[in-house]
Amino acid sequence: MERRNFLKVSVVGATAAAFGGASWLSAFSASAADGDGPYGPLLPADANGVALPEGFTSRIVGRSLEKVAGTDYLWHMAPDGGACFADGDGWIYTCNSEVPLLGGVGAIKFAADGSIVDAYRTLDKTDVNCSGGRTPWNTWLSCEEVDKGEVYETDPFGANPAVVRPAMGRFKHEACAVDPDRQVIYLTEDVPDGGFYRFTPTTWPDLSAGTLEILVGPEDQTSGAVTWATVPDPSAEDDDTRDQVEGSKPFDGGEGCYYAAGTCWFTTKGDNRVWAYDAANSAISLTYDADGPLSGVDAVTGRSNGDLFVAEDGGNMEICIITPDGVVAPFLRVDGHDGSEITGPAFSPDGTRLYFSSQRGTGGGTTDPGMTFEVTGPFRG
């Protein structure tokens, strides 16, 4: 295999080096190899069309417009961002629907043995719910990806009604990630000149009021210190939020967002980059800046050992792993879904299962049904 430098710039600062015992600082300063990941090469696709390393298996847990097994709930169209929540001995996978005007959120409840015991809606009649973020207080923030879209705080357990959070800004939301250490929430914006935002609640963790800020820095800056400035009008009544602060740094199509141990990773699809924001030092850097093997960067999640899992929108429909020791490699590939995108990667609370969706399935059109998958296997760390 040709060796290339995929990880271009280290995460800055000592706090960023602590991520589940893995030294990100030293790893991201080193060269990365385009080769097999820690789980080995992908085997031929299984009966579900998923190519996985040896020892891993897949199943389909939801098909759009079909009842989730053992329930009366029709799984929604265009499954997108998702997250898992512990529920007694089992867990819940909650998932957005990126459908205009109907949108909303659905959920699948699993028993301790992985069997499906229920499925239901937690949000209805919102607009193009793309991604979002999980909170430490066990709610799911569902984000609308439309002009002047909003953030809805939803209850994955289905007991409480969803609540809109206008203080978090009205813009073309993509994803968000909670930083409990600084009691803030980071947000991405999916437009070619989108902002990277930070929301600070007035009273943590009440999201009904607070201050929305946008990251400030030179347009071509890829590393070094940055600052934040308050967005004067988060409601964007007259001007878009990204246009209200002079000198705000544009990002080319903000996508996934994931926080762990002092670092917020976020992706920009327009230039195929994975960024890192070092919260302790208020600095940015590039984690990934290349054409392959990871192409069409989108949703991102991680594990406690420091592995990042980045899903592709397009490309060859893979979820790639970026390891702390500098390897970028495919972890799985979905065959026959060329017109779709991979969405909603999230691990079960015990880390043994990975959930994700193919938003438009094998048809690839905007009205074609999606599929939601579960992968089980010997995940490390």
Rank of each mutant, 00 (worst) to 15 (best):
131 S>G: 13
155 D>R: 04
15 T>K: 15
345 P>A: 02
196 F>R: 01
314 G>V: 00
178 V>D: 01
88 G>F: 08
319 I>R: 05
327 V>F: 04
71 T>V: 07
48 N>M: 04
330 P>N: 05
105 V>D: 10
301 T>W: 03
34 D>A: 13
291 D>H: 00
138 N>V: 06
313 D>E: 15
224 G>N: 04
283 A>P: 10
85 F>K: 05
69 A>R: 14
226 V>D: 08
358 S>H: 10
214 I>P: 01
22 A>V: 05
137 W>V: 03
162 A>P: 13
67 K>R: 10
102 L>C: 05
305 N>V: 07
325 D>S: 15
100 P>L: 07
184 V>Q: 02
323 T>V: 12
234 P>S: 05
165 R>P: 13
284 I>F: 02
367 T>A: 14
325 D>I: 14
115 S>L: 00
189 E>M: 04
23 S>H: 11
323 T>S: 15
347 F>E: 07
354 L>R: 09
74 L>I: 04
343 T>E: 08
79 P>S: 03
45 A>I: 10
175 A>V: 08
126 T>I: 14
357 S>C: 09
182 R>M: 05
17 A>S: 10
356 F>W: 06
46 D>Y: 05
320 C>Q: 13
172 K>P: 00
186 Y>L: 07
237 E>H: 06
94 T>I: 08
31 S>A: 11
183 Q>G: 04
10 S>N: 13
214 I>Y: 05
308 L>V: 01
300 V>D: 03
72 D>C: 03
41 P>Q: 01
148 K>N: 10
28 F>V: 06
332 L>P: 13
8 K>A: 12
114 G>W: 11
102 L>Q: 09
65 L>V: 07
82 G>C: 08
318 E>R: 15
214 I>W: 12
224 G>V: 08
355 Y>Q: 01
102 L>E: 12
230 T>C: 13
343 T>K: 12
182 R>D: 11
275 W>S: 05
174 E>L: 01
325 D>C: 07
262 G>E: 09
69 A>C: 02
247 G>H: 06
61 V>C: 12
361 G>E: 03
339 G>D: 10
240 D>S: 09
6 F>G: 02
297 V>L: 00
314 G>Y: 00
240 D>G: 10
62 G>Q: 08
17 A>E: 05
199 F>Y: 11
73 Y>D: 08
223 S>W: 06
221 Q>M: 13
157 F>W: 04
83 A>Q: 07
94 T>N: 03
314 G>I: 00
293 P>T: 01
128 V>Q: 13
16 A>S: 14
23 S>V: 02
15 T>Y: 08
328 V>L: 03
128 V>E: 14
3 R>C: 07
24 W>Y: 10
109 K>V: 05
307 D>I: 06
27 A>Q: 08
149 G>A: 09
195 G>L: 05
133 G>S: 03
241 T>Q: 14
183 Q>K: 15
278 D>Q: 14
102 L>T: 15
345 P>W: 13
316 N>T: 12
273 R>I: 00
355 Y>M: 04
269 K>N: 11
31 S>H: 05
261 A>N: 15
24 W>N: 02
49 G>F: 09
236 A>H: 08
213 E>H: 11
21 G>K: 06
98 E>A: 12
366 T>Y: 11
107 A>W: 04
327 V>Y: 05
360 R>H: 12
337 H>R: 12
